[in-house]
């Protein structure tokens, strides 16, 4: 009985006591979770855009992040000024979008979704091989300073302690918020956005009212390419630019499960819930079971939400008549 009470205290009392006794640290944890969350949202957004337009889960989103970041750093290493390299990297991502539409998607119109998924897996392998051939597999340092991304820290006094805000994290959060808001506006309030939704609902119906499927796909893949470049810059600046960045894309999966594959607001809210939730879980409860729980805790949080909303937080409720 005593042991049960002890366990209950460790699970239900001590973590909250730690939060109450050191609120500045709690703020720090929430801030770190928030930064991770907006960056997760950014990755998830790349998936959502393509899924909305083509019903395809783009397996290649992770490698697009690596490819975009490597292109940027590679161009800069070749002597191209930083912001020109950004512009050229965007051109490369546009060429990639056109190439994907022409070579991969166009021949597969109206094929089952699983075929398109397999095509993106193939695209991933092609980009991995091409990327390694051109840039090599060695890690590179993101050109954060050259792009004007600040590298210092703010130490903010709070509750007699200090909360540390890394300026790079602050920049990442601001850029991600602006990007997410911009893309949300673009796809919900513009003509192209409405066309995108039409394509997402029914390819053939969209074609019949004069919407160019090819054009929409290029736009969407290019938008996903822009998202990949920004994601690559931000994550690359926090760590390094290497093929390990591809793994980061896995973090979008619980976000997508939670937020729904078709919802831009879902990607944002889902990213924040997962980001903050996994940090709080790891810091205050992780030690009870050995630590390192973030990887699966994100899926637990997502599954918990799915118990109550199977379509995700903002996903479309699909009713199919039998």
């Amino acid at each position: 009985m005593e042991q049960v009470l002890e366990v209950l205290s460790m699970v239900l009392v001590e973590p909250f006591a730690r939060m109450a006794t050191n609120p500045a640290f709690l703020v720090q944890v929430i801030w770190e979770g928030f930064v991770s969350g907006v960056l997760y949202a950014l990755i998830a957004l790349g998936f959502v855009l393509i899924f909305k337009a083509s019903g395809v889960f783009n397996f290649a989103q992770g490698i697009m992040v690596v490819f975009a970041a490597l292109t940027l750093v590679g161009l800069h290493e070749a002597g191209v000024p930083a912001w020109v390299a950004v512009a050229l990297a965007l051109v490369v991502m546009y060429v990639l979008a056109v190439g994907v539409e022409r070579i991969v998607l166009r021949p597969l119109v109206n094929q089952p979704d699983i075929i398109l998924l397999m095509a993106t897996i193939g695209l991933t392998r092609v980009l991995v091989g091409f990327g390694e051939l051109v840039f090599g597999g060695e890690p590179k340092v993101m050109i954060a300073n050259e792009l004007g991304i600040p590298s210092g820290v703010w130490r903010i006094p709070l509750f007699d302690r200090v909360v540390v805000i890394k300026l790079i994290d602050l920049t990442a959060a601001i850029v991600a918020i602006v990007m997410v808001a911009g893309l949300a506006f673009f796809f919900s309030r513009t003509r192209i956005g409405r066309a995108l939704r039409a394509v997402a609902d029914d390819h053939q119906a969209a074609l019949s009212v004069g919407i160019s499927l090819e054009q929409i796909w290029v736009i969407v893949w290019f938008a996903a390419g822009i998202v990949a470049l920004v994601t690559g810059i931000m994550w690359g600046a926090r760590s390094d630019v290497s093929f390990a960045l591809e793994i980061i894309a896995l973090k979008a999966l619980p976000v997508l499960i939670l937020g729904g594959f078709t919802s831009v607001p879902g990607a944002i809210v889902g990213g924040l819930i997962i980001g903050i939730g996994e940090k709080i879980g790891e810091i205050y409860w992780g030690r009870l079971i050995g630590g390192g729980i973030e990887s699966w805790l994100a899926y637990m949080i997502a599954l918990l939400f799915l118990l109550f909303r199977p379509q995700g937080l903002f996903g479309e409720k699909i009713i199919e008549r039998v």
């Binding site: 770190e32 760590s239 390990a244 980061i248 810091i283 630590g291 390192g292």
Partner: peptide
């Protein structure tokens, strides 16, 4: 965990709170 190699803020927040006298690392790759 391998998928958190490039996002170790949780681990280092714990370090910040525990304030160990020394840190030893067995790391690889990113």
């Amino acid at each position: 965990p391998a998928d958190k190699m490039q996002d170790q803020s949780s681990q280092w927040l714990n370090v910040q709170q525990d304030n160990p006298d020394w840190m030893v690392m067995w790391g690889w790759g990113a």
